[in-house]
Design a protein around this nucleic acid. Structure first.
Lengths: 217, 217
DNA sequence: GCTCCCATCTTTTCAATGTCAAGATAAAAG
DNA sequence: CTTTTATCTTGACATTGAAAAGATGGGAGC
């Protein structure tokens, strides 16, 4: 399949011999590609092994089993997920609502550019949600939402049930948009130029929470 | 597993011999049970065959392959999905907003009482979305939402882009709630008594669209 | 009533997959 | 230099989806 079967450990590349050097990372990269190509339900450990050009049992050695590998992948997904939101926030105006809307656009961005990973993170059952790394990464994403909401409504959702309701509303709206668009169910938005689409999305996202800001006064 | 291995074709039951009578329906029922037990990603054709007490290749004969069976199951799911919403609407006050909120509560109800089926219908890739029966059933659910929105905002979303935006907002909100609750991600709502939970959900659902009603005046 | 056709269901077979156990290899420790 | 240990491979087995060929019996036509 490859042209040069043995690149003989080029200076920059990891050695390709028996001991790989950083196979764990290479496997994660291969798993990401496999997931993107085949989707959660078509994902296979042996497919990952082929992509990384190692034996079929190598992935299981590093991650225990399929669930272990997918769990690690999902955790990395949540970190990229947060990064994508922050990326959008950086371009936004510096008020709480604008930041939240930008963050939501990042949420949707991530879903659309990583459809399979998004499904793995939020709806797949092939993941161990109690695993520490995944737990922490997912919690970090949630905490981000909570503190953004706090900045908008002026009360801490962790102490105020009404503010927590705002968190749920904001999350549900953005997540619903991302999910439905991800599965290609909103034709109107798909057929729009991106900047127009983002304006519509921003309008919708703000409905869930923007008017709650007045409550804080 | 079963007590009586051969009920010998009781009068009301289908015959259990070579020619089953209505194996297709029996397989769908078995598939529903398999899906509920194992989830989309643990679903197996052979598991369905065992439940229906037929040979392992019987399901494929009736539905072509796994995708075919899951597609038929998803179509039936959408019909039950609509029924659940209508069930809730029947108990609601007879104004457009109340009907929509009730419908949304039915949406969430369905997701929570059929978690695996809900995932199959909305996010699984093991389904043929171009298949006629599934297409029609899913379209019927969408049409329901569209006409409900029309009743609220007073304009036809199929002709008015702003009204279609309202459709998207309403759908995203409800779908987000259902998805997130379905995957156990909203602890606050999980730990609530159901009637209180429904009040919170109703509040959130109405945020997406209720205030648009004034636009229609 | 009889024969033949054919839809229905079973049996057989094969490739792909996840996982486990045992072996091989090389890096590191002593 | 020897021993230990982590890393990776090989081989094996059960499960699964799917295809192909065979068995069964209902029903059409006569």
């Amino acid at each position: 399949m490859e042209l040069d079967e043995k690149p003989a450990a080029s200076a920059t590349e990891q050695r390709r011999d028996y001991h790989h050097g950083d196979l764990r990372r290479a496997l994660l990269k291969a798993a990401d590609a496999e997931l993107t190509d085949k989707g959660v339900e078509g994902f296979s450990l042996r497919g990952v092994a082929k992509r990384a050009d190692v034996s079929h049992a190598a992935p299981a050695h590093h991650f225990g089993n399929t669930e272990g590998l997918l769990t690690a992948l999902a955790a990395e997904g949540f970190r990229r997920f947060i990064a994508k939101q922050e990326e959008r926030e950086a371009d936004a105006q510096n008020d709480p609502v604008s930041r939240h809307v930008a963050s939501g656009l990042g949420y949707v961005d991530f879903a659309l550019s990583n459809p399979a990973l998004f499904n793995l993170m939020f709806t797949s059952e092939r993941t161990d949600r109690d695993e520490d790394e995944l737990c922490n990464a997912a919690a970090a994403a949630f905490d981000k939402l909570v503190s953004q909401t706090k900045d908008i409504v002026g009360r801490d959702p962790r102490e105020d049930i009404s503010a927590m309701t705002d968190v749920v509303a904001a999350w549900a709206m953005v997540h619903g948009l991302a999910s439905l668009m991800n599965s290609g169910r909103i034709a109107v938005l798909q057929d729009m130029p991106i900047d127009q689409r983002d304006r519509v999305l921003a309008d919708i996202i703000s409905r869930s929470i923007a008017d709650r800001a007045t409550d804080a006064i």
